[in-house]
Structure formats: structure tokens, C-alpha cells
Design a protein around this nucleic acid. Structure first.
Lengths: 339, 339
DNA sequence: CTGAAAGCGCTTACAG
DNA sequence: CTGAAAGCGCTTACAG
């Protein structure tokens, strides 16, 4: 009843276990005849290679770890889906680890996880991907990793969305609709994406010759509640904005909620735009104009880069940065300003 | 530069490796003096136990696998969070596997995953937890698993939400608001939760002496789009319902969208209720009356039961079923029927 | 309370 | 093209 091992297969096929090893690893230089004999025995005994023996000998876990801290559900699920697709194609597994990026023991926490699993590589999401002490330590220990949306992509592997250009395109869209008093709800200050989106907004405004009214630029922290507060703040202004651009969809939904509550109509009274294209964006009323971030693609690209690196063992200062474009999605929450 | 092994620690401490093994495994019967010597060497060499050696000798991976097929993001993230909390407390890791529950090769797919990782146990989400050929095979191979929301909880480990009572409570809430023509949008027919929620709805209606108008019971498949279609269907009826109870929040949001589009006001023209309490439920306008499913608790309970079982090796026909209550959350999408 | 030997199931390095 | 030996880093079973 015990699982058959490579030795059982060897006996059954009348060869040495080294030959069995060669066959199951698809190494060249085995006589076709011998190979077939082994393959037949593998099938007959229903043999599957024990992963622990493999890992011990090869010093590899065949596992990729995804590290995150409290991301939005849609982002996480999209990411995981892209990653598992990339992993399953190469017979690698996905290990999940959530952490607290602000914790003083972040480095220890991650190192412990690594020591306990010996994962082949890490995928770090923002803002974990910005914790320099952690990145330093990983480089010291020569542990492969890819950073998603890091502030600094000058070293190692990274995948980023072009938040800047996308935010600029969205702002232009609002400008084209004759909006001038455009409010911007900023995202969480620790996120690279927040900084770049704001920069894109500012550049589009400036390029079109508008001096930004700083009262219209308010702080949020990427969640619903913060956007409600930010929106209340905007609505108390002596002169209301004609459009609001929120740094992510969850905040746009928060703004929409507050506008609804106040009795203002979107887009008739005020236009509203978000960023991310999470499912909700298309499900609220009116559906939101936003920027689509291809979460699945981000995950797939990150995983592929990472795997490419540790499979080929060329780790020495390998550097590669991948930029992915967001896409403007026009829905019904933005319209021409008639003022 | 190589990682120190148990042998290095043994040399450093002047003991045998077996003694080191005893100490790091917290076995009793080591002289305190010896123990301290070993502990000092562990610290001095910065030793961490290699997981592959451990796994090979113990024939355990110290990994729990979560198996799912396309769940709602909020559900998955909540579940993962509860599971990782339970796992991290016992130094276990979480492995992620998504699958296609309708695939003909589901059993092979899962078995391959098991053979490749030798996970200690599986957490199966609905409707994977209802695939009898898979469950049979897992029992045959004596692989520990816990089923979340299975239709049949007569064997093995399971965690279920009391969908029936919760749906009944929601229906009563609508009845108490003087609604009689209550529509029900059914969930995906393959899900146990859908069946039980519908049954709860029916029982509450019947108990209050109402004969259900079957035109008001329409099919959905748990997603936004299906609920839009179902709602259109309801609105074309000669006599409109005064309230709609959707089997989950995503469908309630779909209904809300369609009502908005038609120009009907919630709850003034029609009341609306959902089920799940995903974040969106509180973020749409008006915020939805719904049933809160404690996703984190479900994950935590499932993981704890599973771990309890395989840690104690008392696998023989162990049976335990855990029922978790949903909670009625009253928000602004339901109000008294004035007709 | 401690240790020497054998074993877990693979691969690596070498020999022929 | 194939195999015997040693090794990966632990634990189990046994002896003292």
C-alpha cells in the first residue's frame, strides 16, 4: 500500500535507479528501448516522484511565494489567477503569505517564512515591494524576487503599471469634456501608484494651462470611508468642482455614495472617474469611467519573470523592468460640463 | 556560506545530532544543561531546520491546500485570511490551487497536485466540496480534508453556514415590513447555499400563510449579469413585486443597477435585500440590507478542524460538522410597503 | 539522559 | 548509454 519509489520502478524495469531518474527527468542519452521499459514500469506501478526526496537533493522547493498586505480583493484574486496560470504551466506551486508591511519585524517574518519553506522565489506586492531593509536582505541572501509596483525599479526584477500616463489620459478625458475645476482624491501615500497617478493628473492639468486649485486636491487612503470624508470636504467648498477624479475605484465608489447621499446626480451635476476597473466599477449606478489595470496580466508577467530567473540560475545582478499599460474605459459617470 | 545543518550544531555543541534533534523538537528527557548548550549553538550558528530533510523523514509537508473554483473575490480573500491566521499559529503554510469543478479531469488534477506537494490536508470550497468522485477518492487515499458548504455533511469534516435560517430571517424581515409580493432571485443551482437559501425563503413565506407566486421566483447564477436579466423579467410582470430578495449580494447589486436604470427608487418603489455582506453591499446607494456571512471565521474554523485532525492522526472515520450563523444586517434598501 | 546506525527518496559526481 | 556510491538534512527505532 506504500507509494512506490524510484527503487521499486528500477527493480520492476530491471535497471538502476539512476536510469529511472534519467527517464523521469527527461534527460538525454537513454536508449529509447530502456526509456520505454522504464516508462512502462512507471505506469504499471503508478509511480509519482516524491517531492521531498527531490527537494532535498535539488535544494529547491518548486514553490513561488506571493507576499501581500491587505490588498483589495479584486486585485489579489486577479493577481493570484495570473500567477497560478504561469506556475501551473511549469509545475510550480503557489504559496501565500500575508504580512504587515509596517511591522518592525517584517524582515524577520519574511525570513522565517523563507527558512520554513525554502520557496524558490518571492512576488512582492506594493507597498511591501518598497521596504528597503527587506529588499536589501533578500539581495544579501541571494533570494530571487520580483517587485510589483515598486517606487524604485532600478535594480532587480519589477513589473509596473504606467499609472502616470493612464492618470494623465483620464484627466485629459475630463478636460476634453470641458471640465476645469477637477478635484483629485489622492490615494494612500505609501503606495507608488498613488504618487504616480497624482503626478499624471497634475501634468495633464498643467499642460492644458490650468493652475491647480489645491483646495480641490484632497487626501484619501484608497478606501471607501476615506473617500466619503474627502468628498464631504470637497462639497463644502464655496465653489464646487464639476468633476472628481479618485485615485482608485473604491474611493470613486465612496465619492459616489456621498454624492448620492447629498442628492447630487452623477454625471449631470458632477462627473466622476476612478482607476483600476474592479468589478464594482461597472456595477454601481451610474457605471464608472475608469482605467483598467490588467491584474491577471500583472501577475502572469511577474511570475514569468521570476521563474525565468531562478530556473536559469543567472541571478547575478539581473535587471529587468516591465511596464504595463492601463486602459481608459469610458462609462456613464462622466459627461460634458455645461457650465 | 552554506546553511548550517544539524550536524554543524551537534559539533559546535559537542553532542550527537540526535540530541540536537531532540532539542529543536522540544522533546522531553534532555538534561537542561545539555539543552541550553544546544540552544546556544543554534543561536551562535544561526541555525534553522531544513524543511526538506524534515519533510522527507516525517513524510509531511506542513502545508494546507485551499482548493477553489472561481469564488467571489471577497469570499476568497476573507477565507484566506482566516486560514492563514489558523495556519501561521501552528507553523503551517498555505498552498493555493484553483481548479475547474466541472472538468472531467478534476480528480486527476487534484491528485496530481497532491502528489506534487504532499500537502497535509485540503480545504475544499463549494461546489468543489460536492464532487462525490473526488471526495470518494480522497477518502480512499486517506487524505485529510474539510468541506466548506457541502450539500452532504454526513461524513468527515465540514463547515457550513446556516443559510436556511438566515434566509428565513431575511424573508420574515420583509414580511414584517408588510411586503407580500416578494420576489426571489435564485442562486447558482450547483451551490448548496443556493438551495438552502431558497428553502428558507419558501418556508418563511409559507409559514406566514402566503402562497408563493412562482412567477416571482426567478433564476440567477450568483453574478451581476444574471441578476439584471432576472430583474428585467420581474419588471415585465403584470403586477410588480414590492420587494426583491436576491440570493447573494452580487445579484442584489445587479438588481439595483437594473432598477436604477428603469428609474425605480429603492426602497421607495421597491425594497431590495441581498445575502453575504460583501463590502460592496455597504458601498452602493442605498446600502443593502443583507445577511453577513463571516468569511474569516469560516476559513479559520475549517482550517482549525482540518489541522486538529491531521495533527492527531485520528483519521479513522472522524466526523464533525460545524454550523455557523449568518447575521441580519439592516441598512437602507428595505422599507415598509405602503400599498 | 544520550548516541550510533539505518532510513526517508531522490540527485550529483564520477566511473566505465 | 548505464550504474554503484555518496550525499542532501533530517527522524525513527533501537541500544545502552
Amino acid at each position: 500500500m506504500k507509494n512506490p519509489t524510484i527503487v521499486d520502478v528500477a527493480k520492476h524495469a530491471g535497471v538502476s535507479k539512476k536510469t529511472v531518474s534519467r527517464v523521469i527527468n527527461d534527460e538525454s542519452g537513454v536508449k529509447p528501448e530502456t526509456r520505454n521499459k522504464v516508462l512502462a514500469s512507471v505506469k504499471a506501478l503508478n509511480f509519482t516522484r516524491n517531492p521531498f526526496g527531490l527537494s532535498l537533493a535539488r535544494k529547491r522547493s518548486f514553490l513561488v511565494a506571493l507576499i501581500y498586505d491587505n490588498p483589495s480583493p479584486s486585485f489579489l484574486v486577479g493577481l493570484q489567477s495570473g500567477i497560478t496560470t504561469a506556475c501551473q504551466a511549469r509545475n510550480l506551486g503557489l504559496y501565500i503569505h500575508n504580512c504587515d508591511y509596517q511591522s518592525a519585524s517584517l524582515v524577520d517574518d519574511i525570513e522565517q517564512m523563507i527558512d520554513r519553506t525554502m520557496v524558490d522565489g518571492l512576488i512582492l506586492t506594493s507597498p511591501v515591494s518598497d521596504q528597503q531593509p527587506l529588499l536589501r536582505r533578500l539581495r544579501e541572501r541571494n533570494i530571487a524576487f520580483v517587485a510589483i509596483n515598486p517606487s524604485d525599479d532600478s535594480q532587480g526584477l519589477s513589473v509596473r503599471v504606467d499609472h502616470f500616463s493612464a492618470a494623465k489620459a483620464m484627466t485629459r478625458h475630463l478636460l476634453d469634456l470641458n471640465h476645469q475645476r477637477i478635484a483629485f482624491i489622492k490615494g494612500h501615500p505609501d503606495l507608488f501608484s498613488s504618487i504616480r497617478r497624482q503626478a499624471g493628473f497634475r501634468e495633464a492639468m498643467t499642460e492644458s494651462g490650468i493652475t491647480i486649485d489645491e483646495d480641490l486636491v484632497v487626501q484619501g487612503v484608497n478606501n471607501f470611508e476615506s473617500a466619503r470624508i474627502a468628498t464631504q470636504q470637497l462639497l463644502q467648498l464655496p465653489q464646487r468642482p464639476t468633476a472628481i477624479f479618485a485615485s482608485n475605484d473604491e474611493m470613486a465608489v465612496g465619492a459616489l455614495y456621498e454624492l448620492n447621499k447629498t442628492g447630487l446626480k452623477v454625471p449631470e451635476d458632477i462627473s466622476l472617474a476612478g482607476f483600476d476597473d474592479i468589478p464594482v466599477a461597472a456595477h454601481v449606478w451610474p457605471p464608472l469611467t475608469t482605467i483598467k489595470q490588467p491584474f491577471g496580466e500583472i501577475g502572469h508577467t511577474a511570475a514569468s519573470m521570476l521563474i525565468e530567473q531562478f530556473q536559469h540560475k543567472n541571478r547575478k545582478n539581473y535587471h529587468s523592468s516591465n511596464l504595463i499599460n492601463g486602459q481608459l474605459i469610458l462609462r456613464e459617470s462622466t459627461s460634458r460640463n455645461k457650465a
